[in-house]
Amino acid sequence: KKKPLTQEQLEDARRLKAIYEKKKNELGLSQESVADKMGMGQSGVGALFNGINALNAYNAALLAKILKVSVEEFSP
């Protein structure tokens, strides 16, 4: 059984999803295209955005690059 995410991890996910929602049209992104760039399925990206799975440093760095932001913008 997976450990529930901490409040901090949930807040990171909320900020990440908000940045994605704000930038997806400008950058021409969908959850599917983000998933392709990350080498995972769309459901995996959804789980990161919705605070189901915790972000690790690798995925955080990859998402920051895809969204053209710094990791600190969603994970201070």
Rank of each mutant, 00 (worst) to 15 (best):
N50P: 03
E8N: 07
V34M: 11
L55P: 04
Q9R: 03
L27T: 07
V45I: 10
S43L: 10
R15M: 04
K22D: 08
Q42K: 15
R15F: 00
S75A: 13
R14W: 08
N56F: 02
A35S: 08
L63V: 09
S70H: 10
K1F: 12
S70N: 14
Q9A: 05
G41N: 15
V34Y: 01
R15P: 01
M38Q: 03
E21R: 07
E26N: 07
S75W: 02
A60M: 02
K1S: 10
K68N: 13
G46F: 14
E11V: 07
S43D: 15
N59K: 08
D12L: 06
L55V: 04
L67N: 11
S33A: 13
A61W: 09
L29M: 05
I52N: 11
L16C: 07
K68V: 01
L55Q: 05
N25M: 13
G46A: 15
L29G: 01
S70E: 14
K37C: 08
D36F: 11
R14E: 10
N53T: 15
G39S: 09
F74M: 03
E73D: 15
L63M: 12
F74V: 04
E32P: 06
S33K: 15
S43K: 14
K1E: 10
A61V: 09
I19W: 00
E11Q: 09
A60W: 00
I52P: 03
D12Y: 03
A64H: 06
S43A: 15
V45W: 00
M40T: 08
L16N: 05
A35Y: 01
E73K: 08
V71Q: 07
A18M: 12
Q31W: 15
A64S: 10
P76A: 02
E21S: 08
E11N: 09
G39W: 01
K2T: 11
S33W: 09
S43V: 11
A57L: 10
E26C: 08
A64T: 04
K3V: 12
F74Q: 05
K2L: 11
K24M: 06
G46P: 07
A61P: 07
S70V: 00
S70F: 08
P76G: 00
Y20C: 01
K24W: 00
L10W: 07
V69A: 03
S70G: 14
L67T: 06
S75G: 03
A13E: 07
G46L: 15
Q42L: 14
M38H: 05
A57T: 12
E11M: 10
K22N: 11
A35T: 05
G46H: 15
I52C: 11
L63T: 09
K23A: 03
V34S: 02
K68D: 13
I66W: 03
Y58N: 15
N50S: 09
L55R: 02
A54K: 08
K37V: 10
L10I: 13
G28V: 06
E11D: 10
L5W: 03
I66A: 07
G41F: 09
E32Q: 14
P4H: 15
A13R: 04
A13L: 01
E8S: 10
A18F: 09
K1R: 08
L63G: 05
E73W: 01
R14C: 09
Q9C: 01
G28Y: 04
Q42Y: 13
G44F: 10
L10P: 04
E21Y: 09
A47Q: 11
K65D: 14
L16A: 04
K23V: 04
A64R: 04
K3R: 11
L67V: 02
T6A: 06
A64L: 00
K22Y: 08
P4I: 14
T6I: 02
N59P: 02
V34W: 00
Y20G: 04
A54R: 05
L63S: 06
D12R: 02
K17T: 07
V71Y: 00
S75I: 00
D12W: 06
G41C: 15
S70L: 00
I19N: 03
D12S: 09
D36M: 14
A35F: 00
P76H: 08
A64D: 04
V69S: 06
K23Y: 02
G41S: 15
F74N: 07
M40Y: 08
E8R: 07
E26G: 08
Q31F: 13
Y20H: 02
N53Q: 14
Y58F: 11
G28H: 11
I19S: 04
R15H: 01
V34G: 01
K17G: 03
L27H: 03
A18K: 11
R15A: 02
P76T: 06
R14P: 00
S33Y: 14
L5K: 02
F49L: 14
A47F: 08
K68S: 08
G41V: 13
Q9I: 00
E32M: 11
K37S: 13
G39F: 03
A60C: 03
K23G: 01
Q31K: 12
K22C: 10
K17A: 05
E26P: 04
L10N: 06
E32C: 10
L63I: 10
F49I: 10
P76W: 03
S33C: 11
Q9L: 01
K3T: 12
K65W: 00
L16V: 08
D36R: 15
A54P: 15
N25D: 15
E32H: 10
G28L: 06
I52R: 13
S70K: 15
M40K: 02
K37H: 08
E26S: 11
E21T: 08
V34T: 04
Y58T: 15
A54V: 06
